[in-house]
Computed example of a mutant assay.
Amino acid sequence: MPRPSPQVIPLLAFSVLLLADLLVKAWASQHLPAAEPRTLIPGLLSLNYTLNTGMAWGLLPNLTLPLALLRLLVGLGVVAALFRGRIPGPRALALGLIGAGALSNAVDGLTRGAVVDYLTSPLLDRVHLLLSTQSFPIFNGADMLVLAGVVLLVLTPAPRTALRPQGDHL
């Protein structure tokens, strides 16, 4: 049985995670806007719907289109890199996570005019309030994908490059 090419798993993960996040956002948009916040995991995670026209912590408010275009470029760049198949496994998976999150939020910005955020964390709120005067921002699955991808990139050693002898150029 032939082995799948190295980019198949990261591309499959990318596709499944992108679709899953878009479906969860569609569900959240349909069921959460008028609802009171709902506890998912007591003290840790709740559902709380909002639309965000900027970034977390109120950064770059009302810049939905430029942010969506930037996210789109990142997501498409990741897809192109994955298709080339030259990125080692764990790093390709990390980029797939980042690309799925970026494209999901880009789709929101381009189709809704804002990113759908629906998760809050009472634990993160308490910690953040100790460090600042604000609650922790409401976030979404795409944000968690990007964060997980960045953490995986940091924890994965960079691939070794072969040292090629350079001829004497004197």
Rank of each mutant, 00 (worst) to 15 (best):
P37D: 01
T39L: 07
T39F: 09
T39C: 11
I41N: 02
I41R: 06
P42T: 08
G43F: 05
L44Q: 12
L45C: 10
N48L: 07
L51K: 12
G54F: 04
A56Q: 05
W57N: 12
W57F: 15
G58M: 05
G58P: 03
L59A: 15
L59H: 12
P61T: 11
P61L: 07
T64P: 00
P66I: 10
A68P: 02
L69F: 05
L70Y: 08
L72M: 12
G75W: 00
G75V: 14
L76K: 07
V79T: 05
V79R: 00
L82A: 09
F83Q: 15
F83S: 12
G89K: 13
G89R: 15
P90T: 13
R91M: 09
A92W: 06
L93D: 01
G96C: 11
L97R: 08
I98F: 09
G99Y: 01
G99A: 07
G99N: 05
G99E: 03
G101S: 12
A102C: 07
A102V: 11
L103N: 02
L103A: 06
S104D: 04
N105I: 11
V107I: 14
L110P: 08
L110S: 10
V116Y: 01
T120Y: 00
S121P: 02
L124D: 01
D125R: 03
V127F: 12
V127T: 12
L129G: 03
L130R: 15
T133H: 12
T133L: 05
Q134M: 07
S135Y: 13
